[in-house]
Lab assay of single mutants.
Amino acid sequence: MEVRTIKVFTTVDNINLHTQVVDMSMTYGQQFGPTYLDGADVTKIKPHNSHEGKTFYVLPNDDTLRVEAFEYYHTTDPSFLGRYMSALNHTKKWKYPQVNGLTSIKWADNNCYLATALLTLQQIELKFNPPALQDAYYRARAGEAANFCALILAYCNKTVGELGDVRETMSYLFQHANLDSCKRVLNVVCKTCGQQQTTLKGVEAVMYMGTLSYEQFKKGVQIPCTCGKQATKYLVQQESPFVMMSAPPAQYELKHGTFTCASEYTGNYQCGHYKHITSKETLYCIDGALLTKSSEYKGPITDVFYKENSYTTTIK
């Protein structure tokens, strides 16, 4: 009895394709271990004539594949690729409408935090270190965002349907971005203890939790000093293409032309909904596939993004 075979390709990165001759009487799992086709788990399936010449994702289970996976995804987590594939199996079914010149995501599976993050990423200057993220990001900007969303979920250790947080998501993504040249110098002034300067680099240099107003941050924000008295913390120097200011959701007025974009969060910790506000020729609110415009805006804002380049204080 002759062994019926077909020729397929296996890959971990969709760049390096490895030619395989597979036995049609055995499952993919018996031949390769966990195997995925377009995100779908085909591990328990036997090869079919229609699979001839198709590319299958496999887990990096030998040295060659491990090197290829690390170079593309910059992670050695053995569960990463499987999590990416199972997320992709959902995100490829989502709709990605162009809204006001940006790629958004039609609401499904509690994905409003991903839509808000995706919209924000198209408006701030950011370059990702893992080629996987950078490639998928370019495709997302062009309207094909399924891979990018699935990668975000995998890097953030999230599953489809789980509630997510924009600030946490951005923080994970910033860790995989090139923020080497970003720098922030802060000064804390206390009447009792004097003053202390701190220099922050990388992710810490672009994120701040405690106030939404970048102007206020430049002037000074009140913080408790270690001595128990009130101290003032203010920005001395900022070198970065953008800054992200966050605070627990509270009524906040966004003035046209003073910011790049913002995240609105309605609801409580267990259950809520994100919308995205962007400042173009007027203010726009993007909620999944829905767009509304207004000249002014007041609502429960939790993150505001500002364009920056270089700032030095005039406070002496």
Rank of each mutant, 00 (worst) to 15 (best):
V22T: 08
I6C: 10
G299R: 00
P34I: 00
N178T: 03
M244C: 05
Q230V: 14
C112F: 08
M85C: 06
D62E: 10
V243K: 01
Q270D: 14
I223T: 14
E281M: 02
P300M: 15
L254N: 00
L291S: 15
L235F: 03
G210Q: 05
W107M: 00
A132I: 06
P300V: 08
D287Q: 04
L118A: 05
A117D: 02
L235A: 02
A177T: 04
E162L: 02
H276E: 01
F70C: 09
I152R: 06
L179W: 02
G164D: 04
Y274N: 00
I45R: 14
Q31W: 13
K93Y: 05
S181F: 12
Y214S: 00
N61Q: 14
S181P: 04
T226G: 13
T91K: 02
V236H: 04
C271E: 10
F56E: 00
D41H: 10
H90L: 09
H276G: 00
R83T: 01
Q251M: 15
Y284T: 08
Y137V: 06
C193K: 00
A40P: 08
A115N: 04
E68Q: 09
V12C: 10
A231I: 02
T116Q: 09
T27D: 13
H48Q: 00
G228M: 00
N110P: 09
T199Y: 08
T199W: 01
I45L: 13
D63K: 12
S86L: 14
E253A: 11
F56K: 02
T76K: 10
D77K: 01
A247C: 07
E264M: 05
L59E: 14
T266W: 02
R184W: 09
D38T: 07
D135S: 10
K201Q: 14
A250E: 15
L37G: 07
M207P: 00
D77G: 06
H273P: 02
K127L: 06
H74C: 09
L133P: 02
R66M: 15
N100D: 10
E308K: 02
Y113C: 04
V206D: 01
V236I: 12
Q270K: 09
D38K: 10
C182I: 04
V42E: 03
P34V: 15
G101N: 00
K293S: 13
D23N: 14
R141Y: 09
F70E: 15
P47V: 05
V206W: 04
E71S: 00
T35K: 04
H273A: 00
K46T: 13
Y28K: 09
A250I: 10
G288W: 02
S104F: 05
E215N: 08
H176T: 03
E204W: 04
K201H: 15
A115W: 02
E68L: 05
K106L: 11
P60W: 06
V8A: 12
Y137G: 04
S181W: 14
H48G: 13
K54L: 15
R83E: 04
G210P: 02
I45K: 13
T11Q: 07
H256M: 14
S263R: 01
F70K: 12
S171E: 10
Y96A: 06
Y57D: 08
G257A: 04
L59K: 08
K233L: 15
P78E: 12
T43M: 11
H51L: 06
T232A: 04
K127S: 12
S181D: 15
K158C: 00
S279F: 04
K95A: 13
S171A: 12
P131K: 02
H51C: 04
N89C: 09
F9G: 07
C285S: 07
P78N: 11
L133C: 14
L179A: 08
Y274L: 10
Y36L: 04
Y113A: 06
L37P: 05
V189E: 13
K255F: 06
T10V: 12
E125M: 00
S171Y: 15
E52G: 10
D23C: 13
S171F: 15
Q20K: 14
T292D: 06
T232D: 02
M209V: 15
G299F: 06
A140C: 10
A87C: 03
P241V: 00
E162G: 15
Y28E: 02
C156D: 05
T313Q: 15
Y172T: 14
F174P: 07
D287P: 06
T91Y: 03
I105V: 11
L81E: 05
D77R: 05
G53D: 11
L151A: 02
A145K: 10
Y274F: 06
Y297S: 05
V166E: 03
K218T: 01
K93D: 11
Y214F: 07
K293Q: 15
T199Q: 12
I45N: 13
N89Q: 14
L133G: 05
A205G: 02
N268H: 09
S181R: 13
R139E: 13
N49V: 13
N110Y: 08
F259G: 01
M209D: 08
